[in-house]
Amino acid sequence: VDNKFNKEQQNAFYEILHLPNLNEEQRNAFIQSLKDDPSQSANLLAEAKKLNDAQA
Rank of each mutant, 00 (worst) to 15 (best):
V1M: 10
V1A: 06
V1H: 11
V1Y: 02
V1I: 09
V1W: 01
V1L: 10
V1D: 04
D2T: 02
D2H: 03
D2Y: 01
D2R: 02
N3V: 08
K4F: 10
K4I: 15
K4D: 14
K4W: 14
K4T: 10
K4S: 08
K4N: 14
K4G: 14
K4P: 08
F5G: 07
F5P: 12
F5C: 14
N6L: 04
N6M: 02
N6V: 03
N6A: 03
N6C: 06
K7F: 03
K7G: 10
K7H: 09
K7D: 14
K7E: 08
E8L: 02
E8N: 03
E8T: 02
E8I: 02
E8G: 04
Q9V: 09
Q9L: 10
Q9D: 04
Q9W: 13
Q9N: 02
Q9A: 07
Q9S: 04
Q10W: 14
Q10V: 04
Q10F: 08
Q10P: 01
Q10D: 05
Q10S: 05
N11L: 14
N11I: 14
N11Q: 15
A12W: 06
A12R: 04
A12L: 04
A12M: 03
A12P: 01
F13L: 08
F13K: 06
F13G: 02
F13Y: 11
F13T: 06
F13V: 08
Y14N: 10
Y14C: 10
Y14P: 01
Y14H: 11
Y14M: 12
Y14S: 06
Y14R: 11
Y14A: 06
E15N: 12
I16R: 00
I16P: 00
I16C: 01
I16S: 00
I16N: 00
L17T: 08
L17S: 12
L17I: 06
H18W: 12
H18P: 00
H18T: 10
H18N: 05
H18D: 06
L19A: 03
L19D: 01
P20G: 10
P20F: 14
N21R: 09
N21P: 00
N21D: 08
N21W: 15
N21K: 13
N21L: 07
L22G: 00
L22R: 00
L22N: 00
L22S: 00
L22F: 02
L22W: 00
N23I: 12
N23F: 13
N23T: 11
N23D: 06
E24I: 09
E24N: 12
E24S: 13
E24G: 10
E24R: 05
E25C: 13
E25K: 09
Q26D: 04
Q26L: 02
Q26S: 06
Q26W: 07
Q26R: 03
Q26Y: 03
Q26V: 06
R27V: 08
R27D: 00
R27N: 01
R27M: 05
N28P: 00
N28D: 05
N28A: 13
N28W: 15
A29P: 02
A29N: 07
A29R: 03
A29I: 09
A29Y: 15
A29V: 13
A29G: 07
A29H: 05
A29E: 04
F30I: 02
F30S: 01
F30E: 00
F30Y: 11
I31N: 02
I31G: 03
I31Y: 09
I31D: 00
I31K: 03
Q32I: 14
Q32K: 06
Q32C: 15
Q32S: 08
S33E: 09
S33N: 08
S33V: 08
L34P: 00
L34G: 01
L34C: 09
L34E: 00
L34M: 06
K35Y: 04
K35E: 06
K35N: 10
K35D: 04
K35V: 09
K35H: 06
K35C: 06
D36V: 12
D36K: 09
D36M: 13
D36I: 15
D36R: 15
D36A: 15
D36T: 13
D36Y: 08
D37E: 08
D37S: 05
D37L: 08
D37N: 09
P38H: 06
P38D: 03
P38M: 05
P38E: 03
S39P: 08
S39D: 09
S39C: 08
S39G: 11
Q40G: 06
Q40S: 09
Q40P: 02
S41P: 02
S41A: 09
S41Q: 02
S41V: 11
S41T: 09
S41L: 11
S41W: 15
S41R: 04
S41E: 01
S41N: 03
A42F: 15
A42D: 07
A42K: 06
A42E: 11
A42G: 05
N43L: 04
N43P: 03
N43Q: 05
N43G: 05
N43S: 12
L44W: 07
L44C: 07
L45P: 00
L45Q: 04
A46H: 12
A46V: 12
A46S: 10
A46C: 10
A46F: 14
A46M: 13
A46L: 13
E47F: 15
E47A: 13
E47M: 14
E47Q: 13
E47W: 15
A48M: 01
A48L: 01
A48N: 00
A48C: 05
A48Q: 00
A48T: 01
K49D: 02
K49C: 10
K49P: 00
K49M: 12
K49L: 11
K50W: 15
K50P: 00
K50F: 14
K50G: 10
L51G: 01
L51K: 07
L51V: 11
N52I: 02
N52K: 02
N52Y: 02
N52S: 06
N52E: 03
N52W: 01
D53E: 12
D53Y: 09
A54E: 13
A54V: 10
A54G: 11
A54M: 12
Q55M: 10
Q55W: 04
Q55H: 06
Q55L: 14
Q55A: 11
A56H: 10
A56E: 13
A56S: 11
